[in-house]
Computed example of a mutant assay.
Amino acid sequence: MPQLTLYTAKVCPFAQRAEIALAEVGADFKRYEIDLSNKPEWYAPQVNPASKVPALAYGGPDVPPDEPSPESIKIPESLVLLQLIPELFPESSTLIPKDPIVLAKARLFIESFSNTFIPAYIALLFRGEEGAEDKLRAALDTVIQARKLEGKKYAVSDEFTIADAAVVPFIARAELLLAEDLTKAEAPRTSKFIAEVKADAKYKPFWDYFDLLKDRESFKATWWPDAITSAARSRLAAQ
């Protein structure tokens, strides 16, 4: 297998998608932490012109991560990597369903989540918008209904797939930061909201699903709550 280097950040839910995939396939790779508030000058020109994480350097000579080789192929974007990584290790995980219809359903599940949960997550956590709680409740309903329709253990399958790996970083951060009131909304608005949603029997299927996801070893190995809460406190203090 050609060398792999992942440029990532503990605080970034998009980056955690790629880290979960690498953990699921048991890949041997170099991990390089990018400080998102102070990115290295070489990162954008040599790794990802968009200056975002995650990005994967594939192939080329075995060099230090902070001296990326022009001979390696640099591949950004979390959803691209979430599918590429298991394709590089086709016998190592169930992330990519072998049934093309199930794979299509996984992609649709990710698309739905991206269009509902993530915008509501951003609106509440980073903007404190009025009405964001209703949007987040609606997003939870969407996840519940999608899983109910499939009737599987995970999102679209009885196996853990890219659909599950794509969503768990965002659900985990929402639960953590809302409960700690580490959001743009005035405390205790979000901690009260998350407590109400968890106590509401209507949303039990959603939290049961999340319990399954956060019990994966790949999630546990790539989850840094202390780094996430510390970054949130620093961001709020700066504002």
Score class of each variant (00 low, 15 high):
L4Y: 01
A9N: 06
K10D: 08
A15S: 08
Q16V: 02
R17F: 07
R17Q: 12
A18K: 01
E19F: 11
I20V: 15
E24K: 02
E24V: 09
G26D: 11
A27L: 06
F29G: 07
K30I: 08
R31V: 07
Y32A: 02
L36A: 10
L36H: 00
K39T: 04
P40D: 00
W42L: 01
P45A: 02
P45C: 02
K52F: 05
K52R: 11
A57P: 03
G59N: 04
G60F: 02
G60A: 07
P64K: 01
P68C: 09
I75R: 01
P76A: 03
E77L: 01
E77I: 01
S78N: 01
V80R: 01
L81V: 08
L84I: 11
L84A: 15
I85H: 10
P86Q: 04
L88Q: 05
L88F: 07
P90C: 12
P90T: 10
S92I: 01
I96W: 04
D99F: 05
P100D: 11
I101W: 12
V102I: 14
V102R: 11
L103S: 09
K105T: 07
L108G: 13
I110F: 04
S112V: 10
F113Q: 14
P119D: 13
P119V: 10
A120P: 02
Y121H: 12
A123E: 14
L124F: 05
G128L: 03
A132I: 03
A132N: 11
E133S: 14
D134R: 12
D134L: 15
L136D: 04
R137E: 14
A139P: 05
R147C: 12
K148E: 15
K148L: 12
K148V: 11
E150L: 04
K152A: 07
S157E: 07
E159T: 12
F160R: 00
A163Q: 01
D164C: 08
D164E: 09
A165F: 10
A165D: 08
V167R: 06
V168T: 06
R173L: 09
A174M: 09
A174C: 13
A174T: 13
E175V: 08
L178V: 09
K184P: 08
A185E: 02
E186Q: 12
T190D: 00
K192E: 07
F193R: 03
V197I: 14
V197L: 13
V197K: 06
V197S: 14
K198R: 13
A201L: 14
K202C: 14
K204R: 12
F206T: 05
F210C: 06
D215H: 08
R216D: 06
S218H: 01
F219R: 02
K220V: 14
T222M: 03
W223P: 09
W224H: 15
W224S: 15
A227C: 10
A232L: 02
R233I: 04
A237V: 03
A238Q: 14
